[in-house]
């Protein structure tokens, strides 16, 4: 190897990752973001993933197909997640697992209790 790369680049990425981890923790436990907490924490996780992939996994050095494999697989994860959620959200109340508020047992008058009770 002709030129010796310094290790400080890696350490710099690591510092950013640590800071982001602490930020996630503070956001999640100290500052209550409510509905924004999920997008915020997921956004930070994506940024961290990109940093790890690009620099620790040396994706910056790779070209072509090797670069797109991981994003493509994430896309398919999103596909299953997205369409399943979309379907779950548009379902009628009765078809949801949490949808039935009353017992499904038929309500019989007391005189017709099933035998054996």
């Amino acid at each position: 190897m002709a030129k010796k790369k310094s290790t400080w680049g890696y350490v710099g990425v690591w510092v950013v990752l640590v800071v982001l981890t602490v930020v996630t923790w503070v956001l999640g436990t100290k500052l209550k973001l409510g509905p924004y907490s999920l997008p915020a924490s997921m956004g930070i996780a994506v940024v961290k993933t990109v940093l790890v992939a690009m620099f620790f996994m040396h994706l910056v050095e790779q070209r072509g197909t090797r670069r797109v494999v991981l994003p493509v697989s994430a896309l398919f994860l999103g596909l299953l997640l997205g369409l399943s959620l979309l379907e779950a959200m548009t379902r009628i109340q009765m078809a949801r697992p949490n949808g039935i508020n009353e017992e499904l047992e038929p309500k019989r008058p007391a005189t017709t209790r099933p035998v054996g009770h």
Binding site: Q62, T65, R66, V69, L70, V72, S73, A74, F76, L77, L80, L81, S84, L85, A88, M89, R96, P97, N98
Partner: peptide, 30 residues
């Protein structure tokens, strides 16, 4: 070797996918 490993990693992502999808759907319900 790099390409083979990246493809394998891609399939690993999909191995975890079910659990993330289950998480998403059940978190939506409860």
């Amino acid at each position: 070797a790099q390409l083979g490993m990246w493809i394998f990693l891609g399939s690993e992502v999909l191995l975890f996918t079910n659990l993330f999808v289950g998480y998403g759907v059940y978190r939506y319900y409860y």
